[in-house]
């Protein structure tokens, strides 16, 4: 009986204590730390937007919130992003056209669009913050000297899947394998 009690003490108090003592991201496999700091993104912006600010044309007074085929402007935008269920105003804000909104209604600027993406793509968001999803350039040993990209720098938010690209030239094959 005493032995069991000792064991229980060990398991419930001592082991977690050992674990707490470990470095924050040194955890057991399967346990995922969600505590990665938000990277400093002050130096990058969203991709160039030709027609910003949107409020130049969009007036909340005259806005039509109905889902419809776009005419007049933006005909080039083909939504291939869960288009059955989504549409412009799920991300763009009707009242403030120069901002996006989260599911909670919180308004966010275009520079913070990754928070919007992260609502559905939480696993990618987590990996991106850890530097594992997406490309980083600069210094491996110094986060201060690293350049990040936002989701929208690589993925078109309206059609996020990568399109095929042209590969670089075929390597020369040795005579025998030609």
């Amino acid at each position: 009986m005493r032995h069991t009690a000792c064991l229980l003490v060990l398991v419930f108090f001592l082991l977690p204590a050992c674990r707490e003592g470990r470095h924050e991201s040194s955890h057991f496999p399967g346990e995922v730390p969600y505590s990665f700091p938000e990277p400093d993104l002050s130096h990058i912006g969203p991709p160039e937007m030709e027609m910003f600010p949107c409020s130049d044309c969009h007036d909340p007074e005259t806005a039509d919130p109905e889902r419809r085929q776009l005419e007049m402007a933006h005909e080039d935008i083909v939504l291939e992003h869960d288009e059955e269920h989504r549409w412009c105003l799920d991300c763009h804000d009707l009242e403030n056209r120069d901002m996006l909104h989260l599911a909670s209604g919180e308004l966010i600027p275009f520079e913070k669009s990754y928070r919007l993406c992260g609502q559905c793509h939480g696993d990618k968001y987590r990996d991106w913050k850890a530097g594992v999803h997406g490309r980083r350039t600069g210094h491996w040993d110094d986060p201060e000297q690293q350049q990040y990209l936002l989701c929208a720098n690589c993925h078109s938010p309206h059609s996020p899947a990568f399109k095929p690209i042209q590969p670089k030239p075929v390597p020369h094959a040795p005579e025998v394998t030609k």
Partner: peptide, 28 residues
């Protein structure tokens, strides 16, 4: 301190590099 050239060029960000002894590194 810099990333290898292949890491920086890869358009899909498939390549990750770092210090295996640093528990906070991308490779770890």
């Amino acid at each position: 301190g810099r990333y290898p050239a292949c890491v920086e060029i890869c358009p899909v960000g498939a390549r990750k590099f770092g210090n295996l002894l640093d528990p906070n590194s991308e490779v770890r």
